[in-house]
Design a protein around this nucleic acid. Structure first.
Length: 839
DNA sequence: AGCACGCCGACT
DNA sequence: GTCGGCGTGCTC
C-alpha cells in the first residue's frame, strides 16, 4: 500500500467508480471501456498494462489509455482483472506521440502500439484444452466420434492449444468438436496468459548463511575438508574470488558457477558442498548487455573545420529547432555527433541517434561504446525480443540515457530528450512501408523533438530535397562540411558509354571494356574494388528463346527472379518459389536464357574473368544470418576479399582504406525507374557509393556504366555541381506539384476480384471528387505491380498543397469515404490502405 | 483477429 | 441426420 499517497489525487477518491479506456491487441480501431475495481483506484495510471477479459473466454493484455468517470451506456462494463505494472511502460510523452502518429498516418493507436512495443511486452492469451480431471475414456457413457477419440487420446499426454488441435486433427473448424466435448464433460477450457519476456539468469554459488556468520565454524570446516581436496579447492577458490571474511556483504552476489568450471573445478564437488549445506546455489538476474568494452575517456581532437561547424550548429540551435549538416563521406561527422551528444548528456537529458539499418554496424557501435559505455543502449532489428525489452526497460529505469538505433527506436519510452540525430536523413528506409503505421522516422523525430523541446540534427552527404528546401528557405539551420578528413581527395568519376561499347562490341557479359580494364589494374596494384548493382538474385527473369515465355509468379503479377544458388525461381513480392524448369512448359524448348543481371550473375562472371581474384557478394541473401554481414565486412576490411559485389548494402557506412575502384553496373535502371524520386535516388546512390572509393593518399576512381552519357543527373554528379542538382529538381517538384511543395497521400485498394478492385477504387475516387475540393486527384490507376498475394490492386494519388490548412479535415473525409465504400455489400472484402507521405 | 452462430451442400 | 465449409457479426 505504500506509494498510494504519491499517486492518489483529488480525482481518484477511494470510493469513486472509475472506468478505463483499454487499448487491446485486436485490429479494432478503438478502445474498450472497463471498470476499475476500487482496490485499484489509487494505483491505476495511464500507460500501465492491464489484464482483462474480452468476449466469453479470451483473456487479453491491454494498455490503459485514459481513466474517467463516465459509465458506458447500453452495456455493463467488465472489470479490469489485474494491473501488470507498478509504473507505466509507456511514458506520457509517448502516449502523446502515439496519438499524433495515429491521426497523422491514418491508422489506429493499436497499430502504433504494436509497432512500438517489443512483443515481449505484449501479452497474449492462448485458449488451451485439457482433459477434465477424473474423466476416463473407457468408463464414459457418452458416445464419441473418431476425431473426438483421437483428440482425447492426445490430451492424455498434455494440454493442447487450439492450433495444436487443428494440426493434430487436420481440421480447420474445431469449435463444434470442442463444444461437443465440453457438453459431454470430457474436457475443460482455460486461458493461458504467457509473459514472453524472460530475464536472463546466471547460476551462482555463495556461502551458506550458517558458515558466513560463524567464523569459527568456517575454520573447523577446513579441518573436515582436509581429507577432501577437491571440495577444499572449491571453497578456497570462492574465498579467494569473493573475500567475504573482509566484507560479508560480498556474499550476496556470490560467484558464477561458470567461474568454478572454467577454473577446472568439478561440478560434483560443488554439488556435494551444496548438499552438505556449506554452499548454496541461486539464480541471479543479469543483463543481456554485459559490456566487455571498456570506457575510454579520450578527448577527440577536432580539426579546425570541424570546430567551426560544431560551433555553427550550436549557434543555429539557439534560435532554430532543426539543423541540417551536409557532410561528405569521410568528413568526420561522427566526431561532431559525439561532441554534441556529450554536451546534451551533460545536461542530464536523453539523446537518440537514428541510423538506417545497414549503417548500424559493429564498427560504429563499438566506437560509440568506447565513449559512452554503459549508459548507451543499442536498438537493432536483428536483436532478439528479450534484448529489446531490456533496452525498453533500461530507458524507463534511466540506465540508458543515450540510444543508438534504427527506425523503430523513435518509438522507445523517452521522457526527456534534448537531442535527436537523424543520420543519413535522406535514406528511404526511415519510411515504414508495411504494415501500418506507415511512418517516416525523420518526420516523427521532428514532431517528437517539438514535444520534448529537443533539437534535431539531420545529417547526410546527400540531403533529401525536402530538407534542402527547408534549409534554402532558412527555416532550418544549414552547415556544410565539405572537406574530407585528412585532406583525402574526392574520387575521379568516369562514365562508361555502353551505347558506344555495344556498337563496338567490346562489352563482355554486361561489363564495359573500361570497367574490365580498370578492375584489372586495380587487382594488379593489390587494391580493392566494389561493384554495385541494386538487384539481388541471378537474373531478374528468365525467358524461352523460342517462344518468349517468361515465368510469372502464381500469386503476383511479376516475373520470377532466378536465384542460381537455390536453383529456383523466387518471387520477391510474396516469396513463392519454384524449381527452375529444364524445358519451356509451353513449347518444350530447352533453350532458356536468363534476362538481365543480378548480383549473383555478376559475381559469377567476374570470377570467370578474374579467376585469381577473391570475390564476395553482399546482398540480402548472403547476409540473412545474424553475423554474416560482419563476416563479409571483416574479410573485406582485412584485404582477403579483392572484389565486393553487392546491392545498396555496399553504399553505407563502410570505411575501407584500400578501395581504389567503385563500379556502378547499371546507372540507367536507377535513372529511368518510373517514380518522381528516381533522379534524387540515383543522385544519392551514385554519390554515396562513390564515397567508398579512395582513401588516404590515393585518389579513387568511380566508373558509371550508362547508355545515356548526356543524362543531366549524371552530368551533375560528374561535375560535382550539387547546387545545380538541387535547384533544378526543386523547380521540377514545384512545377509538377510534388513534395516538398505538395503533400501526397496514396490510397491502395485491394480485392481478390479484379472487377471489384476496379469498381471500388472508382467509387472511392468519385466520392473524393464529390466531397473534397482544393486537392488534386490522380487515378484510380493500375499500379506497376497490379497483383500481390492474389489480391488485385488499384491506387489513387492525392496531392494537397503544402499551405492547405485543411489537412486533418481532408484525412477525416477520406476515412469517412473509406468506411462508406466498405459498407457496400460488394466491397466488403476490400482492403483500403492509406499511405501518407509515400516515398 | 478470433470466435460463435447459422446456413447449406455432401456424405453415411 | 451429421460433418465441415463458409459468410456475417461482435467483442466493453
Amino acid at each position: 500500500m505504500t506509494g498510494k499517497e504519491s499517486i492518489s489525487t483529488d480525482f481518484k477518491e477511494i470510493t469513486q467508480t472509475l472506468f478505463a479506456e483499454i487499448l487491446l491487441p485486436v485490429p479494432i480501431p478503438r478502445t474498450f471501456t472497463y471498470r476499475v475495481p476500487q482496490n485499484l483506484n489509487a494505483t491505476i495510471q495511464t500507460g500501465q498494462r492491464a489484464i482483462v477479459q474480452f468476449g466469453d473466454r479470451k483473456i487479453l493484455t491491454g494498455l490503459v489509455t485514459t481513466i474517467h468517470e463516465l459509465a458506458p451506456k447500453g452495456y455493463e462494463a467488465k472489470y479490469i482483472l489485474e494491473l501488470l505494472d507498478e509504473s507505466p511502460v509507456i511514458s506520457t510523452a509517448q502516449q502523446k506521440l502515439f496519438s499524433w502518429m495515429a491521426a497523422y498516418y491514418m491508422c489506429s493507436e493499436g497499430e502504433v502500439m504494436n509497432a512500438a512495443l517489443p512483443s515481449g511486452l505484449k501479452l497474449s492469451s492462448e485458449s488451451m484444452v485439457q482433459l477434465r480431471p477424473g474423466f476416463d475414456l473407457e468408463e464414459s457413457e457418452s458416445p464419441f466420434s473418431d476425431n473426438e477419440i483421437l483428440l482425447l487420446k492426445s490430451l492424455q499426454q498434455k494440454a493442447l492449444s487450439y492450433s495444436d488441435i487443428s494440426k493434430i486433427l487436420g481440421i480447420k473448424n474445431i469449435y463444434s468438436l470442442i463444444k461437443s466435448l465440453v457438453i459431454k464433460e470430457a474436457i475443460l477450457l482455460y486461458e493461458q496468459v504467457k509473459e514472453k519476456y524472460k530475464p536472463k539468469t546466471e547460476v551462482r554459488v555463495r556461502l551458506s548463511r550458517t558458515y558466513l556468520q560463524d567464523q569459527e565454524k568456517l575454520e573447523n570446516l577446513f579441518e573436515t575438508l582436509a581429507s577432501k581436496p577437491k571440495q577444499e579447492e572449491v571453497l578456497l577458490k570462492y574465498l579467494q574470488e569473493v573475500p567475504v571474511l573482509n566484507d560479508r556483504s560480498l556474499n550476496n552476489a556470490g560467484l558464477a558457477k561458470q567461474t568454478f568450471l572454467e577454473a577446472g573445478l568439478s561440478e560434483s564437488s560443488i554439488n556435494t558442498l551444496t548438499k552438505n549445506g556449506i554452499l548454496e546455489v541461486f539464480h541471479l538476474v543479469v543483463s543481456r548487455f554485459s559490456e566487455d568494452i571498456e570506457e575510454v575517456t579520450q578527448n577527440i581532437i577536432l580539426s579546425n573545420k570541424q570546430e567551426e561547424i560544431l560551433s555553427g550548429i550550436l549557434t543555429d540551435f539557439q534560435n532554430k529547432e532543426i539543423c541540417l549538416l551536409q557532410g561528405v563521406t569521410g568528413s568526420g561527422k561522427t566526431e561532431l555527433y559525439i561532441e554534441l551528444i556529450k554536451k546534451a548528456l551533460d545536461g542530464g537529458s536523453q539523446v537518440l541517434y537514428l541510423l538506417p539499418e545497414i549503417a548500424l554496424t559493429t564498427q560504429i557501435v563499438n566506437r560509440l561504446k568506447k565513449v559512452f559505455g554503459e549508459s548507451m543502449g543499442v536498438y537493432h532489428s536483428k536483436f532478439s525480443d528479450n534484448e529489446r525489452v531490456e533496452v525498453w526497460n533500461g530507458i524507463l529505469s534511466g540506465r540508458f540515457r543515450f540510444v543508438i538505433g534504427v527506425r523503430s527506436a523513435i518509438l522507445l519510452p523517452f521522457d526527456d530528450l534534448s537531442l535527436i540525430i537523424v543520420d543519413e536523413e535522406h535514406d528511404p528506409s526511415y519510411k515504414q512501408q508495411d504494415p501500418a503505421p506507415r511512418y517516416h522516422a525523420k518526420d516523427v523525430a521532428l514532431v517528437l523533438a517539438q514535444m520534448h523541446k529537443a533539437k534535431v540534427l539531420l545529417g547526410s552527404a546527400t540531403p533529401s530535397l525536402e530538407s534542402m528546401y527547408l534549409a534554402k528557405q532558412d527555416k532550418i539551420g544549414f552547415r556544410k562540411l565539405d572537406t574530407r578528413y585528412g585532406e583525402v581527395s574526392m574520387p575521379a568519376l568516369v562514365l562508361a558509354d555502353m551505347k558506344r561499347e555495344r556498337q563496338a562490341k567490346t562489352v563482355k557479359g554486361g561489363f564495359s571494356s573500361l570497367m574490365i580494364k580498370s578492375i584489372q589494374e586495380c587487382l594488379k596494384n593489390k587494391e580493392q574494388a566494389i561493384i554495385f548493382q541494386n538487384r539481388r538474385g541471378y537474373a531478374p527473369s528468365i525467358s524461352c528463346e523460342d517462344c518468349a515465355w517468361v515465368p510469372q509468379c502464381v500469386n503476383c503479377s511479376v516475373s520470377m527472379t532466378y536465384h542460381q544458388y537455390k536453383e529456383s525461381l523466387i518471387c520477391h513480392y510474396c516469396g513463392y518459389r519454384e524449381k527452375l524448369p529444364s524445358k519451356c512448359p509451353t513449347c518444350s524448348s530447352k533453350r532458356i536464357k536468363t534476362v538481365g543481371y543480378g548480383t549473383e550473375k555478376l559475381e559469377e562472371e567476374l570470377q570467370l574473368y578474374f579467376p585469381e581474384a577473391n570475390i564476395q557478394r553482399m546482398d540480402l541473401d548472403t547476409t540473412r544470418a545474424k553475423s554474416s554481414y560482419e563476416n563479409i565486412i571483416e574479410s573485406f576490411a582485412s584485404g582477403q576479399t579483392d572484389i565486393l559485389v553487392g546491392t545498396q548494402m555496399v553504399t553505407k557506412g563502410l570505411d575501407f582504406d584500400h578501395v581504389s575502384l567503385v563500379g556502378i553496373f547499371d546507372a540507367d535502371r536507377m535513372l529511368f525507374f518510373p517514380d518522381f524520386r528516381s533522379h534524387e535516388r540515383a543522385f544519392q546512390l551514385i554519390t554515396q557509393v562513390s564515397g567508398r572509393a579512395g582513401r588516404r593518399e590515393k585518389q579513387g576512381k568511380v566508373i558509371i556504366q550508362t547508355s545515356n552519357i548526356q543524362h543531366p543527373v549524371l552530368q551533375q554528379v560528374l561535375s560535382g555541381n550539387q547546387e545545380e542538382f538541387y535547384s533544378i529538381h526543386l523547380q521540377d517538384r514545384q512545377q509538377y506539384h510534388y513534395p516538398p511543395f505538395s503533400r501526397l497521400i496514396n490510397i491502395t485498394i485491394k480485392h481478390q476480384d479484379v472487377k471489384m478492385a476496379v469498381a471500388a477504387s472508382r467509387t472511392f475516387a468519385d466520392a473524393i471528387h464529390a466531397g473534397i475540393t482544393n486537392i488534386k486527384v490522380y487515378g484510380p490507376a493500375e499500379p506497376m505491380v497490379s497483383k500481390i498475394r492474389n489480391l488485385y490492386l488499384r491506387s489513387i494519388l492525392i496531392k494537397i498543397g503544402r499551405d492547405n490548412k485543411q489537412l486533418s479535415a481532408i484525412k477525416q473525409r477520406l476515412e469517412h469515404i473509406s468506411q462508406q465504400v466498405l459498407k457496400e455489400k460488394n466491397f466488403r472484402q476490400c482492403r483500403i490502405i492509406f499511405d501518407i507521405d509515400p516515398i
